[in-house]
């Protein structure tokens, strides 16, 4: 028998068991990163546990206080309701991923587990302090995104663990996600930003992508925006918005690579951060 094993579990527990029982097996979700690595000879899986048929991983559960999003929820699923209303920034980010073909296949869990600095959902997840629920042979654990993603395409997910779902708290108020690339479709972000304006707690949360090895918060910019916004009118002045952009730019640690220079990334993130904040407060007026 020369063929390798491919397990098609129907539940998360079966997936965990199949992973434990199959030496070297790799988890396969939507395949949009996995298969590229296989096609280009960078990955040669000895065995695969395919999650396509695990129905409990493809769900969006809304409660009054949070959303629980299964790891195999596709970008296409996330782009529409109920997330479009409850988490407009996440839905917007999902709609900017790749193409219709990619959004039909790629998953939220895959975006997290691949942990590319350019992962489009990550800025919003880090801004919202998203929690990742992981299940392994010895049970479950929950960690934040910033704890889980340790470097460029590196995470603390153990080889025998399955990412089950992502939990995010609802924040009443506007959200925006913006990214810069060479065109609108099929673009990997050169810089990206998620801004969450919580009108109840009167705080601003900012997540950044493609401008550091891992998704970042821009804490100084958040503190500044909290003071700069007129919360009763829900507006921000010209100078306050400009300063916000500068503080976001100073929070990032970009590199120069084949997609962009570090200087351009720092400039771009300043422009789109300011634009995102202005869209949030203008939209809320």
């Amino acid at each position: 028998m020369r063929g390798a094993l491919v397990a098609q579990p129907g539940t998360v527990d079966e997936a965990v068991a199949a992973l434990a029982a199959t030496p070297g097996a790799q988890l396969l979700a939507g395949g949009t990163d996995f298969c590229v690595e296989v096609n280009f000879g960078m990955r040669r899986p000895p065995a695969v546990v395919a999650l396509r048929r695990v129905a409990e991983l493809r769900r969006i559960e809304m409660t009054p206080s949070q959303a629980v999003i299964g790891a195999c929820t596709t970008y296409a699923d996330m782009g529409g309701e109920p997330l479009a209303t409850a988490f407009p920034g996440l839905a917007a980010a999902a709609r900017t991923v790749g193409s219709p073909q990619i959004r039909n296949a790629g998953t939220l869990g895959g975006n997290v587990a691949t942990a590319s600095p350019a992962g489009d959902t990550l800025p919003l997840l880090v801004a919202l302090d998203a929690r990742m629920r992981l299940r392994g042979p010895t049970g479950e654990r929950t960690v934040s995104l910033s704890e889980l993603v340790t470097g460029v395409k590196r995470t603390g997910i153990a080889p025998d663990e399955v990412l089950v779902d992502v939990v995010i708290d609802r924040r009443p108020g506007p959200q925006e996600f913006l990214k810069v690339g060479t065109r609108n479709a099929m673009v990997i972000a050169i810089a990206s930003v998620a801004v969450v304006v919580d009108v109840e707690s009167r705080e601003v949360r900012v997540g950044l992508g493609s401008v550091a090895p891992v998704p970042l918060r821009a804490r100084d910019a958040e503190a500044h925006a909290r003071e700069a916004i007129d919360w009763d009118a829900l507006s921000v002045g010209e100078a306050g918005a400009a300063r916000f952009g500068e503080l976001v730019a100073s929070a990032c640690a970009p590199i120069t690579d084949h997609r962009s220079t570090a200087e351009y990334r720092r400039h771009a993130v300043q422009v789109i951060a300011r634009r995102a904040l202005e869209r949030c407060v203008r939209r809320a007026c």
Partner: peptide, 12 residues
């Protein structure tokens, strides 16, 4: 691997 995993198993 153990075909008694209780999961769908395909050989590649």
């Amino acid at each position: 691997a153990d075909a008694a995993l209780g999961v769908g198993v395909v050989v590649s």
